[in-house]
Simulated scan of single mutants.
Amino acid sequence: MSTANVQQLDAFLASVERRAFRMAQIATRDRDEALDLVQDAMLQLSRKYAGRPPEEWPALFYRILENRIRDWQRRQTVKNRLFFWRPSVQDEEQDEDPVEQVAEPGPGPQETLQRVEQMRRLEQALRDLPTRQREAFELRLWEGLSVEDTARAMGCSDGSVKTHLHRALAALRQDLEGVWP
């Protein structure tokens, strides 16, 4: 792999890391698991697909990431069935460090509280979406992938992407009605 190609791959991975992390964090509700999933997806893209043309990387990366998330969710389902007496991730979230939960300085307390509540409602609405609808929403609107690239990343047809996105938007509009002015 040439030095220029390595630099292009590094730039691509740097450009997607935050959004990919956010997607994984919403899906897993666990910061550490989300970091691991994104890192695994980045490593697999680098190892197996670095030689591909750069315009193919977004669809490949998000396909890898969504597969990693799905695998993690399957493992969690099995683990929860086997170890049902253990606390869930949601229960563990309440034990987080209180210093990390303090709002950062910026707008007034009322605005900050409103924004925090809006984001909490958005994250919950995204979690409530069926998996395929959430994937279509994140890839098309957050990542800005084309319908074709999204279809490749999700492993479905262009029409399915449009249908999933339409349903996701309708559900989000309904769930978030009145949340934003």
Score class of each variant (00 low, 15 high):
52 R>Y: 14
78 V>Q: 10
53 P>H: 02
114 Q>M: 08
28 T>M: 02
75 R>S: 13
130 P>H: 06
95 D>Q: 07
26 I>C: 01
16 V>W: 04
36 D>L: 03
52 R>L: 10
36 D>T: 04
108 G>Y: 10
102 V>Y: 10
59 A>V: 11
89 V>D: 15
75 R>V: 09
121 R>T: 02
70 R>T: 14
127 R>M: 14
69 I>Q: 07
97 D>V: 01
89 V>M: 06
75 R>Q: 14
78 V>G: 03
83 F>G: 02
134 R>V: 13
22 R>Q: 15
112 T>K: 11
94 Q>P: 04
26 I>D: 00
22 R>K: 15
121 R>I: 01
33 E>L: 05
71 D>G: 12
17 E>L: 03
81 R>E: 11
28 T>N: 01
58 P>Y: 10
33 E>Y: 01
40 D>H: 03
32 D>P: 03
131 T>S: 13
39 Q>S: 07
60 L>W: 14
37 L>K: 00
71 D>Y: 13
69 I>E: 05
24 A>N: 08
131 T>N: 09
35 L>S: 13
74 R>D: 13
101 Q>F: 11
67 N>E: 13
85 W>P: 09
30 D>K: 01
108 G>P: 03
60 L>T: 15
43 L>C: 10
79 K>S: 12
134 R>H: 15
126 L>P: 14
86 R>I: 00
42 M>P: 04
132 R>P: 07
24 A>W: 07
37 L>W: 09
28 T>W: 01
108 G>Q: 10
52 R>I: 05
